[in-house]
Design a protein around this nucleic acid. Structure first.
Length: 186
DNA sequence: TCATTGATGGTCT
DNA sequence: GACCATCAATGAG
Protein backbone atom coordinates (compact mmCIF):
# COMPACT_ATOMS: atom_id res chain seq x y z
CA UNK A 1 0.00 0.00 0.00
CA UNK A 2 1.43 3.34 -0.99
CA UNK A 3 1.19 5.96 1.73
CA UNK A 4 -0.69 9.20 1.24
CA UNK A 5 1.31 12.14 -0.01
CA UNK A 6 2.67 14.81 2.29
CA UNK A 7 1.39 18.19 1.14
CA UNK A 8 4.14 20.16 -0.67
CA UNK A 9 5.03 23.72 0.17
CA UNK A 10 3.25 24.89 -3.00
CA UNK A 11 -0.04 23.77 -1.41
CA UNK A 12 0.40 26.37 1.33
CA UNK A 13 1.76 29.06 -0.97
CA UNK A 14 -1.72 30.15 -2.07
CA UNK A 15 -4.78 32.16 -1.05
CA UNK A 16 -5.66 31.20 2.55
CA UNK A 17 -9.34 30.80 1.61
CA UNK A 18 -8.45 28.13 -0.91
CA UNK A 19 -6.03 26.46 1.50
CA UNK A 20 -8.67 26.49 4.27
CA UNK A 21 -11.21 24.78 2.02
CA UNK A 22 -8.80 22.22 0.65
CA UNK A 23 -7.40 21.30 4.07
CA UNK A 24 -10.80 19.84 4.94
CA UNK A 25 -10.50 16.06 4.80
CA UNK A 26 -6.68 16.15 4.96
CA UNK A 27 -4.81 14.53 7.82
CA UNK A 28 -2.63 16.23 10.40
CA UNK A 29 0.18 13.96 11.62
CA UNK A 30 2.44 14.42 14.67
CA UNK A 31 4.92 11.82 15.87
CA UNK A 32 5.94 12.08 19.54
CA UNK A 33 8.39 9.58 21.02
CA UNK A 34 7.62 7.15 18.22
CA UNK A 35 3.87 7.42 18.74
CA UNK A 36 2.00 8.69 15.69
CA UNK A 37 -1.06 10.83 16.28
CA UNK A 38 -3.35 11.41 13.30
CA UNK A 39 -6.48 13.54 12.93
CA UNK A 40 -8.68 14.33 9.96
CA UNK A 41 -9.18 18.06 9.57
CA UNK A 42 -12.90 18.86 9.64
CA UNK A 43 -12.98 22.59 10.47
CA UNK A 44 -10.76 25.56 9.53
CA UNK A 45 -10.74 29.35 9.46
CA UNK A 46 -8.91 31.64 7.04
CA UNK A 47 -7.07 34.77 8.24
CA UNK A 48 -6.29 36.83 5.18
CA UNK A 49 -3.43 39.11 6.25
CA UNK A 50 -2.73 42.51 7.91
CA UNK A 51 -5.74 44.09 6.18
CA UNK A 52 -8.00 41.48 7.85
CA UNK A 53 -8.79 43.10 11.20
CA UNK A 54 -9.51 39.71 12.80
CA UNK A 55 -6.00 38.45 12.01
CA UNK A 56 -3.22 38.72 14.56
CA UNK A 57 -1.02 40.13 11.79
CA UNK A 58 -3.30 43.18 11.62
CA UNK A 59 -1.48 44.40 14.76
CA UNK A 60 1.75 44.43 12.83
CA UNK A 61 4.94 42.45 13.03
CA UNK A 62 5.59 41.53 16.67
CA UNK A 63 7.49 38.70 18.36
CA UNK A 64 4.25 36.71 18.50
CA UNK A 65 3.17 37.26 14.90
CA UNK A 66 6.64 36.92 13.40
CA UNK A 67 5.95 33.42 12.06
CA UNK A 68 2.82 34.62 10.22
CA UNK A 69 5.03 36.98 8.21
CA UNK A 70 7.39 34.14 7.34
CA UNK A 71 7.34 31.60 4.49
CA UNK A 72 4.33 29.30 3.85
CA UNK A 73 4.06 25.75 5.14
CA UNK A 74 5.14 26.52 8.70
CA UNK A 75 3.12 26.21 11.92
CA UNK A 76 2.03 29.35 13.75
CA UNK A 77 1.22 28.26 17.32
CA UNK A 78 0.14 30.75 19.97
CA UNK A 79 -0.99 30.64 23.61
CA UNK A 80 -4.46 31.95 24.39
CA UNK A 81 -6.71 32.53 27.43
CA UNK A 82 -4.01 31.35 29.81
CA UNK A 83 -4.54 27.66 29.09
CA UNK A 84 -4.77 26.73 25.43
CA UNK A 85 -2.67 26.66 22.31
CA UNK A 86 -4.03 27.21 18.81
CA UNK A 87 -2.38 26.04 15.60
CA UNK A 88 -2.36 27.66 12.18
CA UNK A 89 -0.62 26.86 8.93
CA UNK A 90 1.07 29.89 7.36
CA UNK A 91 -0.05 30.60 3.79
CA UNK A 92 1.14 32.72 0.85
CA UNK A 93 4.69 33.99 0.20
CA UNK A 94 6.90 35.42 2.93
CA UNK A 95 5.66 38.84 4.01
CA UNK A 96 1.96 38.25 3.26
CA UNK A 97 1.13 37.26 6.88
CA UNK A 98 -1.91 35.10 6.17
CA UNK A 99 -2.76 31.77 7.79
CA UNK A 100 -5.36 29.07 8.31
CA UNK A 101 -6.46 28.14 11.84
CA UNK A 102 -7.14 24.43 12.40
CA UNK A 103 -10.28 24.32 14.54
CA UNK A 104 -11.31 20.66 14.77
CA UNK A 105 -10.16 17.14 13.98
CA UNK A 106 -11.84 13.79 13.66
CA UNK A 107 -9.71 11.20 15.53
CA UNK A 108 -7.97 8.72 13.24
CA UNK A 109 -5.10 7.40 15.36
CA UNK A 110 -3.97 7.86 18.98
CA UNK A 111 -6.23 10.85 19.57
CA UNK A 112 -8.31 11.22 22.71
CA UNK A 113 -10.96 13.78 21.89
CA UNK A 114 -14.04 14.21 24.05
CA UNK A 115 -15.11 17.52 22.64
CA UNK A 116 -13.60 19.78 20.00
CA UNK A 117 -12.19 23.21 19.27
CA UNK A 118 -8.79 24.69 18.44
CA UNK A 119 -7.52 24.52 22.04
CA UNK A 120 -8.43 20.88 22.56
CA UNK A 121 -7.15 20.02 19.08
CA UNK A 122 -3.67 21.09 20.15
CA UNK A 123 -4.00 19.29 23.47
CA UNK A 124 -4.99 16.04 21.74
CA UNK A 125 -2.23 16.35 19.13
CA UNK A 126 0.46 17.28 21.65
CA UNK A 127 1.03 20.67 20.05
CA UNK A 128 2.50 23.49 22.13
CA UNK A 129 4.61 26.62 21.74
CA UNK A 130 7.73 24.56 21.06
CA UNK A 131 6.26 23.82 17.62
CA UNK A 132 5.78 27.49 16.73
CA UNK A 133 7.62 28.12 13.47
CA UNK A 134 8.14 24.43 12.73
CA UNK A 135 8.25 23.48 9.06
CA UNK A 136 5.23 21.35 8.15
CA UNK A 137 7.38 19.38 5.77
CA UNK A 138 9.19 17.90 8.78
CA UNK A 139 9.42 14.14 9.21
CA UNK A 140 7.39 14.15 12.43
CA UNK A 141 4.96 17.00 11.85
CA UNK A 142 3.05 17.42 8.59
CA UNK A 143 -0.24 17.18 6.70
CA UNK A 144 -1.09 14.44 4.20
CA UNK A 145 -3.78 13.83 1.66
CA UNK A 146 -6.53 11.44 2.71
CA UNK A 147 -6.20 7.80 1.71
CA UNK A 148 -9.35 7.47 -0.37
CA UNK A 149 -11.98 9.49 -2.14
CA UNK A 150 -14.11 11.29 0.43
CA UNK A 151 -17.14 13.22 -0.72
CA UNK A 152 -18.53 15.91 1.54
CA UNK A 153 -20.19 19.30 1.45
CA UNK A 154 -18.29 22.35 2.69
CA UNK A 155 -20.21 24.79 4.90
CA UNK A 156 -19.26 28.48 5.29
CA UNK A 157 -19.88 30.49 8.44
CA UNK A 158 -18.48 33.60 10.21
CA UNK A 159 -15.32 33.01 12.22
CA UNK A 160 -15.57 32.34 15.95
CA UNK A 161 -14.47 34.77 18.68
CA UNK A 162 -13.62 37.75 16.46
CA UNK A 163 -16.58 40.05 17.11
CA UNK A 164 -14.17 42.92 17.74
CA UNK A 165 -13.19 42.94 14.05
CA UNK A 166 -16.15 44.94 12.72
CA UNK A 167 -17.26 43.94 9.23
CA UNK A 168 -14.44 41.39 9.04
CA UNK A 169 -16.20 39.42 11.77
CA UNK A 170 -19.13 38.84 9.44
CA UNK A 171 -17.11 37.44 6.52
CA UNK A 172 -17.74 33.75 5.85
CA UNK A 173 -14.20 32.55 6.46
CA UNK A 174 -14.92 29.56 8.68
CA UNK A 175 -15.22 26.29 6.78
CA UNK A 176 -16.30 22.87 7.98
CA UNK A 177 -17.51 19.51 6.75
CA UNK A 178 -21.30 19.48 6.78
CA UNK A 179 -22.78 17.02 9.26
CA UNK A 180 -19.47 16.00 10.81
CA UNK A 181 -19.89 15.28 14.53
CA UNK A 182 -16.48 16.65 15.49
CA UNK A 183 -17.04 20.21 14.30
CA UNK A 184 -16.97 22.71 17.20
CA UNK A 185 -19.91 24.86 18.35
CA UNK A 186 -22.69 22.77 16.87
C1' DT B 1 -31.37 26.77 24.08
C1' DC B 2 -29.05 30.80 25.42
C1' DA B 3 -26.34 33.95 28.33
C1' DT B 4 -23.00 34.33 31.83
C1' DT B 5 -18.87 33.23 34.26
C1' DG B 6 -14.44 31.21 36.21
C1' DA B 7 -9.94 29.32 35.15
C1' DT B 8 -5.39 31.14 33.90
C1' DG B 9 -1.36 33.80 31.81
C1' DG B 10 0.97 35.85 27.57
C1' DT B 11 0.96 40.07 24.83
C1' DC B 12 0.71 44.75 23.88
C1' DT B 13 -0.26 49.67 25.36
C1' DG C 1 -4.18 47.04 33.11
C1' DA C 2 -7.08 45.41 29.30
C1' DC C 3 -7.72 42.20 26.11
C1' DC C 4 -7.88 37.60 24.20
C1' DA C 5 -8.79 33.19 17.11
C1' DT C 6 -11.12 28.85 24.47
C1' DC C 7 -13.78 25.56 27.16
C1' DA C 8 -16.85 23.68 30.62
C1' DA C 9 -20.02 24.55 34.06
C1' DT C 10 -23.94 27.00 35.62
C1' DG C 11 -28.55 28.93 35.84
C1' DA C 12 -32.53 31.14 33.86
C1' DG C 13 -36.39 30.70 30.62
Amino acid sequence: MTGPNKLPRSFYDRDPIQVARELLGMRLVHVIDGVTRVGRIVETEAYLGPHDLAAHSARGRTPRTEVMFGPPGHAYVYFIYGMYFCMNVVTQPEGMASAVLLRALEPIQNLDVKSSGPGLLCKAMGIDKSLNGRDLLSKDFFVTESTGVEKFTIMKRPRVGVDYAGSWARRLLRFYIKGNGHVSRR
